[in-house]
Nucleic acid binder design. Sequence first.
DNA 1: TGATATATATCGTAGTACGATATATATATG
DNA 2: CATATATATATCGTACTACGATATATATCA
Lengths: 155, 155
Amino acid sequence: MSRDDINSSKKATPQPDYQSLAELRYQIRRFLHFSEQAARQARIEPNQHQFLLALKGLPENMRPTIGILAGRLQIRPNSAVELVNRLSKAGFVKRRRDSDDGREVLLVLTAKGEAVLHELSLHHRAELQTAGPVLMAALQAVLKQARPKLNSGKT
Amino acid sequence: MSRDDINSSKKATPQPDYQSLAELRYQIRRFLHFSEQAARQARIEPNQHQFLLALKGLPENMRPTIGILAGRLQIRPNSAVELVNRLSKAGFVKRRRDSDDGREVLLVLTAKGEAVLHELSLHHRAELQTAGPVLMAALQAVLKQARPKLNSGKT
DNA sequence: TGATATATATCGTAGTACGATATATATATG
DNA sequence: CATATATATATCGTACTACGATATATATCA
């Protein structure tokens, strides 16, 4: 007993708002692109930079193992191994075969790795000063039209 | 007995908050990872999906040319050409050598492309229902500590 | 002890963005 | 109007890296 209008008071708008969705992805890409360039300027590969950040910024309750880091980077454990190979070859991290569990490998930042990460983090924080709000806006635009049910809105 | 405590009321915190920075990137990766898997489930390559979205969601004042799309995807124009090659081979887009400028190529979605994009967009919108707020929170956490100066500010 | 699970490592492969370069069309300039 | 130059796409070979499949080492359980 209801007509399917476009979008007015339905549960979830049937037609997605492509424009806001596209804008969100565009802004995300811009930020990621900035990040990659910043990394290369700092003489480190973007994915290696992300590894360093994931390592240093790991929540305290997590152990810095290959597997955990892989999860944080959303890559397969074997890919993480290869990444660590390149990282240690470049002198950014060290492997520490310690722990109770002899299978695990704990990753540790070297001074060099720490330095690059520090520099890059400051740069990123500065960039986010402007990019952040833009991202927020794009995200909110998507969420606004995505809202599943919302009648009696006041706006 | 040192005063380089955490951060309290400085201009811009000298030490970046690695944890919130890392968390932001983690959440971005989770969303992108979801997106990639969703695309593959829909039988399309993630980058091809992004192209379709960028095309359909292009602001009205922009013409859907290779160059413009390349900019929106943050890739080189020649990479965009190759992407379009794969897209048209797969039947998702068509080239339209029209326009006043004979050098340009205008991209057009096929019905097939439209269909996949529609499906994926709904899926993404649904995902963002939960992922969106998490991203927002992560972003805000970074911005909070990144705020450069905050005296006599208006919020 | 033996069986099985888990963590890391190795290796070959495939996919793709890139730089360098080529071609086509447009525009400027004499 | 002919030529020079700029711009938009296109082509081609290369390099990088994440991946699947598999191997090895250690842990855990029966």
